[in-house]
Write a protein that binds this DNA or RNA. Structure first.
Length: 560
RNA sequence: UGGGGCGUAGCCAAGUGGUAAGGCACCGGUCUUUGGAACCGGCAUUCGUUGGUUCGAAUCCACCCGCCCCAGCCA
């Protein structure tokens, strides 16, 4: 057991519990998603906590699907969730479903009815709401609250048998209609729903509510520490009430703050709207904050886990800046991903004094952060492509890339000097005529001369064409929900969150790059091969490199 | 005077009576065949406010202010 390193209040509680011998030093947690949608980065924080704490203290963590509402749940989501949890790097001990417990829950309901702690109520949904009272006024007791145990037992059994239509009756806990805690004002335990369930089919037509299922499910699994997000603080009294009335294993619930990120939406309802209204291409669109979207974008599980660890666990409603996530992404990618050259916006360069028929293989380092990654060779020839942004006919101050008369280094190749700029009839620069210094092969300068810039390139005759998809934040504003009256978050959608470049040039070593493979395009950023890639190469930009020049240039144009 | 939570730097966050960790961002600098990475340095006399207790308060007490959650037969 480790008690070193950054802690948090839940971890501290666990350490205390182990020390005091509560639960015999055992730690059992669970991650309990409802299979009604895809997992996103917010869930990743919960997963890291649930699985991470169990692992740290030699405990176990179950994956339990909270599938108590058949109207929203599907097997497709169950499978996607399992895939995402494993991709993130975690393996559950037990795999369970709340629906596994339907029979036990039903028997416990009968036990509560028998004890006079639950009753069948014939009030409609509207009536129940009216009887519940308000935040400041107490509720009123249902006229059905004092039915006899026998009648309740009979009615509940008939509810189960399917004798009544949806919505006609509910089973309610008999607690206190005047409680200041709204959840305790005779909460509904069961509702009638004649609907197929993704696992139990038509076996049941009454389904337990979250509050009646969750705590008992934890208890059945002997969960010691049940973590959930802050909005469930209000449910804790009820969670405890059922466990106490039933006299079952005392699981305890602890609430922590939900993850929130700038420029990002993490509400299943809103993400669903983005998908349905085709603002994105699907749940795994690389701009989505879903784990499947992030995976396709090129995120690594390690980066996400490190990020989750960095934001900590507390009870404050904070909004973490996206840059913090991006930092951990770059950090991980930087040390594991091979470098390669890609020219996104090609500008032709002809080396006038380089032999027309010569092709040299230049040796390049695959990953300067990892010497075991070795080297590869890249063909060099007379006609090349360089990045359009790496040349300025009239270079501004502090721009030290290529310009007329200026010398720069071609990465791993030669030093070249720009002699002439060729334009088309419209004045657009179409080609640069340069000369190279044969003594600088590999980019070395035997005379010790310095050049201020090294730029990337690709041999025109050897380059492969590729499509590159550049992604930006899906939302322009930090808070996507910050909109004018009458608008919704879609008003904040970034019109250029996806930009497709169709004729990028990549070095030939990328010919057979398989989908999912990650690279750093030198000086540009991190990219990965999209699943759309085939005979035609398609890359997703995961994240750009930090760009100091862009910052300088922006500062200059903004007029600082 | 409904209940439950939370306020420490631009953001996240340690800290639980002994004189404000760390990370992101930002700003300098070193180094560099990626304007990347790495490295060095800077960045809260003050912890929502106001009082009080104390030799000593972000930590204890009181009041006030602000924000979040709860009135689904959703989870």
């Amino acid at each position: 057991m480790s008690t070193e390193g950054p802690s948090n209040f839940i971890r501290d509680i666990i350490i205390e519990d182990i020390k005091s011998g509560k639960y015999g030093g055992r730690v059992q947690t669970r991650f309990p998603p409802e299979p009604n949608g895809y997992l996103h980065i917010g869930h990743a924080k919960a997963i890291c906590l649930d699985f991470g704490l169990a692992a740290e203290f030699g405990g176990k963590c179950n994956l339990r699907f909270d599938d108590t509402n058949p109207s929203k749940e599907e097997t497709e989501y169950v499978n996607a969730i399992m895939e995402d949890v494993q991709w993130l790097g975690f393996q559950w001990d037990g795999l369970y479903y709340a629906s596994d417990y339907f029979q036990q829950l039903y028997e416990w309901a009968i036990q509560l009815i028998t004890a006079g702690k639950a009753y069948v109520c014939d009030l409609s949904a509207d009536e129940i709401r009216a009887y519940r009272g308000t935040l400041t006024e107490p509720g009123r007791e249902s006229p059905y609250r004092n039915r006899s145990v026998e009648e309740n037992l009979d009615l509940f059994e008939r509810m189960k048998k399917g004798e009544f239509p949806d919505g006609s009756r509910t089973l309610r806990a008999r607690i206190d209609m005047t409680s200041p805690i709204l959840n305790l004002r005779d909460p509904v335990m069961y509702r009638i729903l004649h609907m197929d369930h993704h696992r139990t089919g038509n076996e049941w037509c009454i389904y337990p509510m979250y509050d009646y299922a969750h705590g008992q499910s934890d208890s059945i699994e002997h969960v010691t520490h049940s973590m959930c997000t802050l909005e469930f603080e209000n449910n804790r009294p009820l969670y405890n009430w059922f466990i106490e009335q039933l006299g079952i294993f005392p699981s305890r619930q602890y609430e922590f703050d939900r993850l929130a990120l700038t420029h990002t939406l993490l509400s299943k309802r809103k993400l669903l709207k983005l998908v349905e209204e085709r603002h994105v291409e699907g749940w795994d669109d690389p701009r989505m904050p879903t784990l499947s979207g992030m995976r396709r974008r090129g995120y690594t599980p390690e980066a996400i886990r490190n990020f989750c660890a960095s934001v900590g666990v507390s009870k404050t409603n904070g909004i973490t800046q996206l840059q913090q996530l991006e930092y951990f992404l770059r950090q991980d990618l930087n040390r594991i991903v091979p470098r390669v050259m890609c020219v996104q916006k090609p500008l032709r360069v002809v080396i006038e004094n380089y032999p027309d028929d010569l092709v040299e293989e230049m040796e390049a380092i695959n990953n300067p952060e990892d010497s075991s990654a070795g080297t590869r060779t890249i063909p060099f020839s007379r006609t090349l492509y360089i990045e359009e942004d790496d040349f300025r006919e009239d270079p501004p101050k502090q721009f030290y890339r290529l310009a007329p008369g200026r010398e720069v280094r071609l990465r791993y190749a030669y030093l070249i000097t720009c002699k002439e700029v060729i334009k088309d009839s419209s004045g657009r620069i179409v080609e640069l005529r340069c000369t190279y210094d044969p003594a600088t092969r590999g980019g070395n300068t035997p005379d010790g001369r310095k050049v201020k810039s090294t730029i990337h390139w690709v041999s025109a005759a050897h380059a492969l064409s590729a499509e590159v998809r550049l992604y930006d934040n899906l939302f322009v504003k930090e808070d996507p929900n910050d909109v004018a009256e009458g608008q919704d978050f879609t008003a904040n959608l970034h019109p250029e969150s996806l930009q497709v470049l169709h004729d990028c040039k990549v070095e030939p070593s990328l010919r057979d790059a398989a989908p999912g493979t990650k690279y750093q395009f030198e000086r540009l950023g991190y990219y990965c091969v999209d699943r759309d890639s085939g005979q035609r190469l398609v890359f997703n930009r995961t994240i750009g490199l930090r760009d100091t020049w862009a910052k300088i240039e922006k500062r200059a144009t903004t007029g600082a």
